[in-house]
């Protein structure tokens, strides 16, 4: 498990270094993820407890951004006067985004990759 953890942290550091050195337009951890994706085919299944470490991180993903989100206390005076506008923007943009994503996929999939039984709601 410790080996897997070291690998994952190592990939993030490597990603961050490469982004810095090559001035790439993505955050370091995202490049780390892409590097991990390239590495995965080379590793045996569940290498060194990789599954366990990954599951732990992903199951608690939401806890990890609590400290940063609490930083909103420093911006309360910026947000409170525009709270209503902000909420309306988020809500409308979300509905538009979800409808477009699902609709484009559904229309294309009907012709190119029809759903199997387990992929359809009854």
């Amino acid at each position: 498990m410790l080996v897997a953890l070291t690998l994952i942290i190592g990939l993030q550091v490597l990603g961050t270094l490469m982004v810095e050195l090559l001035a790439m337009p993505i955050p370091g951890p995202v490049l780390g993820m892409l590097l991990f994706l390239l590495l995965l085919p080379l590793l045996p299944r569940d290498w060194s407890g990789l599954d366990q470490v990954t599951r732990f991180f992903l199951a608690n993903l939401s806890l990890l951004f609590v400290p940063a989100a609490v930083g909103i206390v420093r911006h309360l005076d910026l947000v409170s006067p525009i709270l209503l506008q902000l909420l309306v923007v988020l809500l409308l943009s979300l509905l538009i985004g979800m409808a477009v994503t699902a609709w484009v996929f559904a229309v294309l999939a009907r012709r190119l990759a029809p759903a199997r039984d387990e992929e359809l709601e009854p």
Binding site: P27, P29, G32, M33, F36, F57, L58, L64, F65, P67
Partner: peptide, 17 residues
């Protein structure tokens, strides 16, 4: 807790694979 964000993003590769 905050520093674990980066490694968590790296982990997203596994479900994709």
């Amino acid at each position: 807790i905050h520093v674990m964000l980066g490694p968590a993003v790296v982990c997203l590769a596994l479900p994709i694979w």
